[in-house]
């Protein structure tokens, strides 16, 4: 391998790795706050990437129907709950959240799609279409089971993954799409040929990390999320509703998923089920970082990106195998160093 090639692989690794890092952060957040292993994150990636490509082709992405249908189902659940408890106080706000907001976004998409908006507008539209799916998914699939064990929630995630990936196939079809790069420019940095697209990805990831850091260290809602992650009972006792924390963390995760999809869609061809693998690489990054520390998860994810780009050079057929078996040494190390923990639940 020449020096040039390894630099090129390095660039590729950092680009993908920073997307995995974003995903790893979102997955860790959701796990800490709701104890959910958020497998369906992958579908949000696919949805966003495919929607962007469709918008660029002037077509209305099918995710609109998922959004409307999901909102309708969530609203129905809220209505049923209000009927059962005979409490109406929160109903109008929640119906607005699940019906009006998705409806407005869908209408906007329907109006804008054939008019071929410019790139920035396309991206914003995609983010607006996919982000509300997070809270909607939380409301439908997870909130009724909030007290369940980690393992039950894991199975819920798998079921949700089935539903969302099935819907992806229905609304986007089986063929892959790729959107136009944000920028075609290339710079020469010494011997390195840097693509503007890579810079975009890295810069956007860094910006999001900064915003997340500010959110969690400065804002009260960020602290409320951390509080829920640290001590669920304590959080309830100061009046932080677990549903609020769950919804909020799912919204953040969905936003990050959508953004990752947007960033990756010009880099590689995305199919309805590609996102699943991408999100799992975020998990691998989080596991490499020990499933607990945000900075380590970022490092682990960059490691995944590197491993992937270098192994695709050496043996591209087995690059997935190499990436996914990379967790074995980490698990081995952890199982030798951790004392067994008791899951006190039944």
């Amino acid at each position: 391998m020449s020096f040039d090639i390894s630099l090129w692989l390095l660039q590729d690794g950092v680009t993908n790795g920073s997307i995995y890092a974003l995903l790893a952060l979102a997955l860790l957040l959701v796990f800490a706050v709701t104890r959910t292993i958020f497998v369906p994150q992958g579908e949000f990636i696919s949805y966003a990437a495919l929607s962007l490509a469709l918008l660029q082709a002037g077509r209305l992405p099918g995710v609109v129907y998922v959004l409307l249908g999901g909102g309708l189902a969530a609203a129905a659940l809220e209505l049923a709950q209000a009927l059962r408890a005979r409490r109406w106080r929160h109903l109008p706000r929640r119906l607005a959240l699940y019906l009006l907001l998705p409806g407005a976004i869908a209408a906007l998409a329907w109006w804008a799609a054939p008019r071929k908006p410019d790139l920035a507008e396309q991206v914003l539209l995609v983010l607006a279409l996919v982000t509300p799916l997070g809270p909607i998914l939380y409301r439908i699939a997870y909130q009724p089971l909030a007290g369940a064990s980690i393992l039950v929630l894991f199975i819920v995630s798998m079921a949700a993954h089935y539903v969302l990936s099935g819907l992806g196939l229905v609304f986007f079809g089986g063929e892959g799409l790729r959107s136009r790069p944000f920028a075609d420019a290339h710079f020469r940095l010494g011997v390195l040929d840097v693509s503007a697209q890579s810079l975009w990805v890295v810069a956007a990831s860094l910006a999001i990390m900064l915003v997340l850091w500010l959110f969690f260290s400065r804002s009260l809602y960020g602290k409320a999320l951390r509080a829920t992650a640290v001590n669920r009972i304590g959080a309830r006792l100061v009046g932080v509703r677990p549903e609020l924390a769950g919804s909020l963390s799912f919204a953040i995760a969905a936003f990050i998923g959508a953004l990752s999809g947007v960033l990756i869609s010009p880099v590689t061809t995305i199919y309805y089920d590609t996102g699943f693998l991408i999100a799992l690489k975020g998990f691998v990054g989080a596991i490499l970082g020990g499933m607990g520390s945000y900075p380590l998860a970022v490092l682990g994810s960059l490691g995944v990106g590197m491993l992937e780009s270098f192994s695709s050079f050496w043996s591209s057929a087995f690059k997935e195998t190499i990436v996914f078996t990379a967790i074995i040494p980490v698990l081995l190390w952890r199982s030798l160093t951790t004392r067994q923990v008791e899951d006190e639940e039944e």
Binding site: K223, R226, A227, V230, N231, I233, G234, A235, L237
Partner: peptide, 11 residues
């Protein structure tokens, strides 16, 4: 104020 205090240890 519960018996176990339930503080947010990391905060």
């Amino acid at each position: 104020v519960p018996e176990r205090r339930e503080l947010f240890g990391d905060l």
